[in-house]
Design a binder for these strands. Structure first.
Lengths: 342, 342
DNA sequence: CTGAAAGCGCTTACAG
DNA sequence: CTGAAAGCGCTTACAG
């Protein structure tokens, strides 16, 4: 009956207990759905909670129970649709399991990443899903995380880390893209974009090289062209493809962002992607289908990867997972119109 | 000197205090940078914290201090680049201010939105930044949030809510787009996409109508075409534009997603956007520039809007903001190649 | 089925 | 400058 709040202005279990005429313990049991409470008592308590507008303080409960109901998601760049979709998938699966997502973004900076992890870890997440920035220092990260919080590394391998890993089958993806170009008759095929010091780039290059070697073509180092994994930098580096004659007729791109940037760069040079130069991507981001022409690419289903990452990390939290897991998600070729036969 | 952890396995202030030979209070003062602690003591304590790998439990501190160091961000769809950029901006500014972002996504479902808000609020965020799902129930939301947590509503107005609002200058944006088409000689101009029951759609339609009326053209209800604000639905509804003769020669689209979908729909019908039908967008998402042809649109700089939202909400939290604020962000026309003269 | 008491990891007056 | 004590909002044995 008493609407007076306690000294802090915040409604607590105490207020509900007083209003319902029971002890705090009883209210707590109601909250947690215990069968110990008489059905009438439960109803009375619930009515009071609704009437007062009580909101549960999960932080206090978590502190007492020594549990956590959050998972941190550290992502390098939310403006990359691949990671945005991934984040959406993570959040979806975490929410379904009753966890809340703590978001942190690093902008591809290892220093910011360290700061972000240091800040998130103070909020005591049950686990961390980390899509590492390029050039991450595994040892420094391990120190920032400490020994008590499980980590799932996504997408880029972190050399020397003891953590779970979820990645794409990069090698097979690039292999499929390269084979597609070979089947169309291309023989001078470049690998365009990405930084060779990232594991995903190395793996994709390996798949590309495999496919070429299978048909007796040697990899030409001049056609292994690096760029930042962004549209802009890829567009800017288009010229490197045509530095030497004969130039390639096709490029397997590190990812879709790079492929779209390359297409932009080609158009600026008066070329027609899909008509006089073939391009493949990697990721199948939503705008791949909207490009002109629509981009042939490797689909990785980032949203499903996000759900999968959440599942893996929760399995680790619940302690049901065995030793550090290395999970490689399958990947498939999506043929659209950016590759002409030659 | 003692590496033994307490019973829970977790390192606490107590452990650091014992190892450094001081009281918990002293360690706490060190942690909070108090000048009361002797410099030598501070150094000794900090050395122990580093050596032991102590991590601060901010939840416990927040509970005791009755403060919160998180802000909840509720967004309807992270796979929309406009919201992904917005989220990135929010997170960037919150992190800079020492707050952590609690993420929730609603998938444009008012029911899920209620559940998400109900779950986030239990984590006691200092504030909520809410980009409401279509068809949100303001009263139900207000009940879920309670009276103690400030909310900033972004993008879509929530009728009857007492909360701060940050929106775009929708009316002016659509006005600019329509004027651009008029200046190119178009006279039969449709307004394509969006749902008329959302405030942003109504405002954009009003700007469109203003511009037409200014030059003595009446709005034709047949050319006010609704769609979900997505690429797919827009593409599917393209035909409605050509149901009657004479058909429009141009469309002001509700947003970029709709505009890109419309362009896709036009191509499927054998038309050439930018050559025989003019299209404008709204948002200037990154792929607008990559469309074929590049999309003329209204730039809203979602990342800057995210930073702005964080700032507004923090001002409210610090209590420096006066009465409920209504902030309308300026918007500008970006001319590219999707509109030909007629 | 309910109540009194202790405790999660921290902070904050208050003495000294 | 440091220590002992109380308390943030909850949960959990333990009695009854």
């Amino acid at each position: 009956m008493n609407l007076r709040k306690n000294s802090t202005g915040r409604l607590t279990l105490n207020d509900v207990a007083r209003a319902a005429g029971v002890s705090r313990a009883t209210v707590s049991l109601v909250l947690r759905g215990s069968p110990l409470v008489h059905v009438d008592t439960r109803a009375r308590v619930e009515a009071e909670m609704a009437r007062l507008g009580y909101v549960y303080n999960r932080a206090a409960a978590n502190l007492r129970r020594r549990v956590s109901s959050s998972v941190a998601l550290v992502v390098n760049d939310l403006s990359n649709p691949f990671f945005a979709e991934f984040a959406a998938g993570v959040d979806e699966a975490l929410a379904a399991a009753g966890y809340v997502t703590l978001l942190g973004s690093t902008g591809e900076s290892p220093e910011r990443q360290l700061a972000v992890v240091g800040s998130l870890i103070e909020h005591d997440p049950a686990a961390i899903i980390l899509s590492p920035a390029e050039g991450s220092d595994a040892a420094a990260l391990a120190r920032a995380v400490g020994p008590r919080t499980p980590v799932l590394v996504f997408n880029r391998e972190l050399a020397g880390s003891p953590w779970d890993f979820l990645g794409l089958d990069n090698r097979r993806g690039a292999h499929l893209a390269t084979e597609h170009l070979l089947a169309l008759g291309h023989r001078r095929i470049a690998f365009f974009g990405g930084h060779a010091d990232s594991s995903s780039c190395r793996e994709r290059r390996a798949g590309y090289a495999d496919a070429l070697r299978n048909v007796g073509i040697a990899v030409d180092d001049d056609w292994l062209i690096e760029s930042a994994p962004t549209r802009m930098d890829a567009a800017a580096r288009t010229g490197l493809l045509f530095a030497r004659e004969p130039a390639p007729t096709a490029a397997v791109c590190y990812n879709d962002a790079v492929a779209l940037g390359l297409m932009l760069g080609l158009v600026r040079r008066g070329r027609h992607p899909g008509r006089d130069f073939a391009v493949t991507g990697f990721d199948d981001i939503p705008e791949a289908i909207l490009a002109a022409p629509p981009l042939t690419t490797i689909a990785a289903d980032p949203r499903a990867r996000g759900r999968q990452a959440a599942q893996l990390v929760l399995a680790r939290v619940e302690g049901t997972a065995p030793e550090p897991q290395r999970t490689i998600a399958a990947v498939e070729l999506v043929v659209r119109e950016s590759c002409m036969p030659v």
